[in-house]
């Protein structure tokens, strides 16, 4: 047996998140966790697995179902110098607490002329694909990204989940950290094998605001994020066999948005497909198209293609839901359309 200097092992995205939080809690006594069922349960989506056993009820706090109350309390604690990691169980529940998020968490630093910092992480589960219907399946990252004052981080795999969580906790700004249920590697949900991967045991960071080239290619750029990165990589592998070379850009954060990486990829391939599990209109896919159009539309040899949820709430029945989600089949078809 050999020992390596930086041991890695295969873990799920959920475990990677929890591990990052645990390491930050060890390093900084100001870091603590609160949210519904984050304690003994370990988070409904595993994002706080084992933290309760390690740190106890003082630092891993189960809250009442009072999102305005405990998210607001997170803001207050952050203002006083603590570093709360607060979980909003499903992002869909933003409706009951958006005032604290948008009017307080995201605005205090600016309103105070930079005098007050809010070093807080608000994490929430996103996404559909398992028939949880209209109130439990949304992505909504475009909504948060639209409102100024909060960083918006959206990992697609275990390695980034760990590194981005560490960066989010260390950041002096409020960070919304949105993880896709289908990319968590949960035992009770259909999962892509990419949701379990090698992750170093030690602490490390992935900088917020840098997109990743998840796969290099020369014919088409797919710009995407979250679970759709996993699907796009599957499609890219499949299309390679058909002679189509697909580049996959994993945005990793919406705010800040790494425009440069997007532009470089599109400049290389000349063709842009944006894949987004959020609603289509007035959101991320339009923003990415605008980045290209504002810079140099002539870099495109074909009009921009957008694959996103067609502005309907997420329906329940499987046939209905899969009709509106960006599936591998639809991604592959969109790439082929661009190549036609």
């Amino acid at each position: 047996m050999t020992t390596t200097e930086n041991p890695t092992r295969r873990i799920t995205t959920a475990k990677a998140m929890a591990e990052a939080i645990g390491l930050e809690m060890q390093a900084d006594p100001n870091v603590f966790v609160m949210g519904e069922d984050v304690g003994a349960y370990g988070g409904i989506f595993g994002s706080t697995t084992d933290l309760f056993a390690e740190f106890g009820a003082d630092r891993v706090i189960d809250t009442p179902i009072s999102e305005t109350g405990f998210i607001g309390a997170g803001i207050g604690a952050a203002v006083e110098g603590l570093r709360p990691v607060v979980e909003l169980m499903f992002v869909d529940f933003y409706g009951v607490c958006m005032d604290q998020i948008s009017n307080h968490m995201a605005k205090i630093h600016y309103e105070s002329g930079g005098a007050v910092k809010v070093p807080m992480v608000l994490m929430a589960a996103t996404g559909g694909g398992y028939s949880d219907a209209a109130q439990h399946s949304q992505c909504l990252w475009g909504t948060f990204a639209h409102l100024p004052g909060m960083k918006v981080v959206v990992p697609s795999n275990p390695y980034d989940a760990k590194g981005l969580m560490a960066s989010a906790i260390q950041d002096d700004n409020p960070v919304i950290y949105l993880f896709h249920k289908g990319a968590q590697g949960l035992v009770w949900m259909e999962k892509n094998p990419r949701s379990i991967a090698d992750v170093p045991e030690e602490a490390f960071t992935v900088p917020i605001g840098e997109a990743a080239i998840a796969r290099e290619g020369s014919d088409v750029s797919i710009v995407t994020l979250s679970l759709s990165v996993q699907h796009s990589l599957d499609v890219a592998e499949q299309l390679e066999g058909e002679g189509i070379s697909v580049e996959v850009v994993d945005l990793r954060s919406l705010v800040p948005l790494d425009r440069q990486t997007v532009l470089e990829s599109v400049a290389k391939t000349g063709k842009l497909l944006v894949v987004d599990e959020d609603y289509k209109s007035f959101g991320l896919s339009g923003e990415i198209a605008a980045v290209v159009a504002e810079t140099d539309p002539t870099m495109l040899t074909k009009p921009v293609s957008r694959l996103a949820v067609p502005d309907v709430p997420i329906p329940y029945a499987r046939t209905l839901e899969y009709a509106i989600l960006p599936t591998r089949e639809k991604i592959a078809a969109a790439v082929k359309d661009l190549m036609a």
Partner: peptide, 16 residues
């Protein structure tokens, strides 16, 4: 069961 004859034609499901 998510069927067209359902209360909500399969759009809502058991929570809606």
């Amino acid at each position: 069961y998510g069927r067209t004859t359902g209360l909500c034609k399969g759009k809502g499901g058991h929570m809606h």
